[in-house]
Amino acid sequence: MLRRILFWLALALVIFYFAFPLYWIVISSFKTIADVTRATPAMLPFVDFQQTLANYSSILLGTNIESETGVQAAASLGEFRERLLNSVIISGISTALAVGMGTLAAYAFSRFRIPGEGDLLFFILSTRMLPPVVVLIPIFLFFSNLGLRDSYLGLIILYTSANVPFVVWMMKGFFDEIPLEYEEAAMVDGYSRIEAVWKIVIPEAIPAMAATAVFSAIVAWNEFVLSNLLNRNYASTVPPYLNSIVGVGQVEWGRLAAAAVLFVIPIIVFTFLVRNHLLRGVTFGAVRR
């Protein structure tokens, strides 16, 4: 009995620890300026404070927010929506590219004898060991000369190359678990290797691809430093925008919270869409022989 109580208590603590910040952000996004800056924080909507959609309409539609201290400047019309779209485009394309290319490379590493395989795999991984900040200046100069600043292509290239190593390693581990006999059976049955991969291996690999896609998408979605530096005028993504809300004069907590909520929704939706595959994907090695 006591063990059960302790168990539920521990569980509640853990859930509180992880969920409370989210709760905090969500309620803050519905607060007026007065409520969000109150010294004793209001915790319960309807009870402690009167919720408002003003923050959302400001972020999305550029409407002004009235408050006792005066009218707050609205965000320039449509900027958030535009950035959200940019984030979706850049994260989406770079994730698709990283998963596509990484999966093919991983298949080759898993199935063929490649000279220097171990070294190559380590090299691929090693590109992830350097924090991007270290190469910020070279990348900046490089991209300036190539005309890749303020472009979709620039960030797509960067995010794709940042994610490919991760995909290669994840997917190689997964392919290693898929018995070679699957392709061999298909090849004996009259299919080429490409057909065998397409008809048998890829459908088997979809859960793992979904899992790696989620992780890759999160990396690209949340990336701040490179985006902030390279895409200031065109094709800018959301994370620097969140920072800019913090930046101007008084911190507009309500709008910041609303933007943050809108920012995490797409990634949650994406994760939700692939959720059925996720569990099988992250617990790979569960392919039965």
Binding site: P179, E181, Y182, E184, A185, M187, V188, D189, G190, Y191, S192, I200, P203, E204, R289
Partner: peptide, 16 residues
Amino acid sequence: PGERDIAFVFQFYALY
């Protein structure tokens, strides 16, 4: 393999 007109049954069946 596909041109040899044979069928192979694997030890672990390799059913998809």
